[in-house]
Amino acid sequence: MANSLFRSLPLHRRRPSLIALVLNALAVQRQRRKLFGLSAAQLKDIGRSRAEAEQEARRRIWDAPVHWLR
């Protein structure tokens, strides 16, 4: 009974698996590393400063907005 209820829930209401959480955390870390590695001209193109890129790169791996984890 519980399994059929779980399957009927929309995907966005299910809890992510441990593997999905780890993969998302690694993706966030990789994106932050790439942001930190951008040149001043590239940062200017995306409307960010070096200070903002450094601040984002210092954030913890689990410190990501919820909408990034979907």
Rank of each mutant, 00 (worst) to 15 (best):
V22L: 14
R60L: 06
E56G: 01
G37K: 02
L11H: 04
Q42A: 09
R58F: 14
R32L: 00
I19A: 13
E56H: 06
G47V: 01
D45Y: 11
Q31G: 07
A41Y: 06
R48N: 03
W62Q: 05
L21N: 13
K34L: 05
V66Y: 08
A27R: 06
I61Y: 12
S17Q: 05
R48T: 04
L69N: 06
R32E: 00
R13M: 11
R14S: 01
P10H: 04
N3Q: 15
Q29I: 04
A40E: 07
R15C: 09
P16A: 10
W62G: 04
L23Q: 15
R14E: 01
P16N: 10
R33G: 10
P16S: 09
L35C: 05
L5P: 02
A2Q: 14
H12L: 08
F6Q: 09
L23C: 10
R14I: 10
V22I: 15
A2Y: 13
A20S: 13
L21M: 13
R13V: 07
Q29A: 05
A51W: 07
R7Q: 14
R14N: 04
S49I: 06
L5R: 13
A51H: 09
L11G: 01
P16M: 14
H12P: 02
K34P: 01
R33P: 03
R30K: 01
I46M: 10
A27C: 03
L35E: 04
L38S: 05
A40Q: 02
R32Q: 00
R58I: 10
P10G: 02
L43E: 01
L43C: 01
P16R: 13
Q29M: 07
W68F: 14
R32C: 00
